[in-house]
């Protein structure tokens, strides 16, 4: 019964059965419908042809991992010791003038106070601890004070200890670090990486991105292409 009713309401499949003048044998799409669909499809394809590349052009930076494979000299080994940080300036982007410069804090790795940290990602510890001054709360520059051996952020009062771990305030993880190596007696600084509160190594993340427990899955890494 129900089937019969739906059959009655449905339009006939063939245009000839709908009583259209000039219908062809076996024709199911009207010419008007075909032309409308064709015009829409052509317009859609033409629009997509310029819009999609332009969109990709604008959105591409979201899908690059942003790491720069570049080593920068920050001075001879004799400049640094394990008990105090020395500020140095590196260039993160030469194209922006002063805005492309960043201050980093460098000290020698101390095998005793720095318990063999997983931050090196292997058995070979990074010979220098190089901390970024970018506060991981919202990105203001932190400053190191030698007397309390603390890093303090001027914006919202974030405090980090001698290893760069959070000691107070709003920051969500320790200060970011940089790769470091020694070549011909000179210290060189490489790419940035982030660490969680156990100093486990992660790819570079933005400030305010948590990296502990389940939080780390809410702030995905940049896709490497």
């Amino acid at each position: 019964m129900a089937e019969n009713r739906s059959d009655k309401n449905r339009k006939p499949r063939y245009t000839a059965d709908r009583g259209m003048p000039g219908a062809f044998e076996g024709e199911t799409v009207t010419r008007r419908g075909f032309m409308t669909g064709g015009a829409l499809a052509a317009g859609g394809i033409a629009s997509a042809a310029f819009a999609l590349p332009a969109l990709g052009f604008a959105l591409a930076p979201m899908f690059t991992d942003g790491t720069v494979d570049r080593w920068q000299d920050v001075g001879p080994e004799s400049d640094f010791n394990p008990t105090a940080y020395v500020p140095k300036v590196i260039n993160t982007d030469p194209g922006v003038g002063e805005a492309g410069k960043a201050t980093i804090y460098v000290r020698k790795f101390d095998p005793e106070s720095d318990k063999p940290s997983p931050s090196d990602g292997g058995s070979d510890p990074i010979p220098y601890v190089v901390l970024s001054t970018r506060c991981v709360h919202l990105g203001c520059p932190v400053r190191y004070y030698q007397a309390p051996k603390r890093f303090v952020c001027p914006c919202h009062g974030g405090i980090y200890d001698f290893q760069g771990k959070v000691d107070g305030g709003p920051p969500v993880r320790p200060l970011d670090r940089f790769e470091a190596r020694v070549t011909n007696g000179r210290v060189e600084v490489g790419e940035r990486f982030s660490v969680n509160s156990e100093l486990r190594r992660f790819s570079p993340r933005d400030p305010s991105n948590h990296l502990d427990g389940l939080w780390q899955y809410l702030y995905p890494a940049r896709p490497s292409t």
């Binding site: 930076p61 991992d65 942003g66 993340r205 933005d206 991105n209 702030y219």
Partner: peptide
């Protein structure tokens, strides 16, 4: 960037990359 899931992408879109450049 602090928004979960989309935050890091949004920040990269605004900056045009991982760093202010």
């Amino acid at each position: 960037a602090s928004a979960p899931l989309i935050g890091p992408f949004l920040a990269d879109f605004l900056r045009g990359g991982a760093e202010f450049s």
